[in-house]
Design a protein around this nucleic acid. Structure first.
Length: 271
DNA sequence: TACCAGGAGATCC
DNA sequence: GGATCTCATGGT
């Protein structure tokens, strides 16, 4: 059993697990978070300013998963006013390093969808693939998921994304995600775009959350919202990405996660 | 009822 | 290359 103890300013489960990058965690009455990642059950208990993170497996895996060895403060030495506010607002937020296949399918489901529904669909998929009554069920491997029928996935609420999920699961079975994590960001995105249901935004989410490409900058409705309202920039997703690359540098994706969280917490929907 | 949600595919030019 | 329409589903 690996046990990691953090100050809440370094890893805050209340922020990380509600930030829309993972969909498999929930909080109990006592404030303890439970979920599953890399096929392993995780608990993260909050007591005052101390966070105790526990999971089976090597400590290295969970240090990498939580991205807690990296000093985010040093990544943005001279943030502009907006980013400075977002960094302060999201104190304790981290960009998780998740399983590529789970990230791929989760963000295919995320397209034109909302976070509570995404979580529900994923949970039902995991439960269906597990066929058991265990409390926590892992995310299925590509072969198991691909063996579900399109009708099965529609019955679980996936809607028109059902065929995308099956096709992409089949393709993932023949994909070496380790290689995609090692090649340059642009090359990884080109490869990810070959999956059905993966466009520019979803490809960036997979590159950032699943492959560790910190320069990936997913542009969604919230990002366009914050760039329009707080930066006065109303351009296409492509223009927004080039602005982000210039403004936030090679760790733009980490800035993006803070800006996303900040926008959802402070800006009005539809603004 | 119409609109929205961490968009993408298909089809148009 | 960009503009436009449609795509399930559940919540407001």
């Amino acid at each position: 059993m690996a046990q990691l103890v953090f100050d809440r300013s370094r890893f805050d489960p209340d922020t990380v697990f509600q930030s829309g990058q993972t969909f498999r965690f929930s909080r109990d009455e006592r404030g303890t978070w439970r979920g599953i990642a890399h096929g392993t059950e995780i608990t993260a208990a909050v007591r005052g300013d101390t966070v105790t993170f526990e999971a089976d497996g090597p400590e290295d895996l969970w240090r990498r998963y939580t991205d807690t060895d990296r000093d985010y403060g040093s990544l943005f030495p001279n943030p502009d006013d907006v980013l400075a506010s977002a960094l302060a607002y999201g104190k304790g937020l981290r960009v998780l390093r998740q399983e590529p296949f789970e990230t791929l399918i989760s963000f295919i489901i995320s397209a034109n969808n909302n976070i509570p529904r995404i979580s529900g669909i994923i949970e039902r998929i995991c439960r269906t693939c597990a066929r058991g009554a265990k409390e926590a069920v892992p995310f299925p491997d590509p072969g198991t998921l691909a063996s579900l029928g399109e009708a099965d996935l529609r019955a679980l609420g996936a809607g028109y994304r059902a065929p995308y999920i099956i096709e992409s699961a089949k393709r993932a079975a023949d994909t070496d995600f380790g290689t995609l994590a090692a090649v340059p960001y642009e090359d990884a995105v080109q490869e990810l775009l070959k999956f059905k249901g993966v466009g520019p935004k979803v490809a960036d989410c997979i590159a950032l959350f699943g492959l560790g490409h910190a320069q990936a900058f997913p542009v969604d409705v919230w990002m366009r919202r914050i760039l329009k309202n707080l930066y006065g920039l109303a351009g296409s997703p492509k223009q927004v990405r080039s602005f982000a690359e210039e403004r936030f540098g090679k760790h733009a994706g980490i800035a993006q996660q803070y800006l996303f969280h900040y926008a959802r917490g402070t800006l009005a929907p539809g603004s």
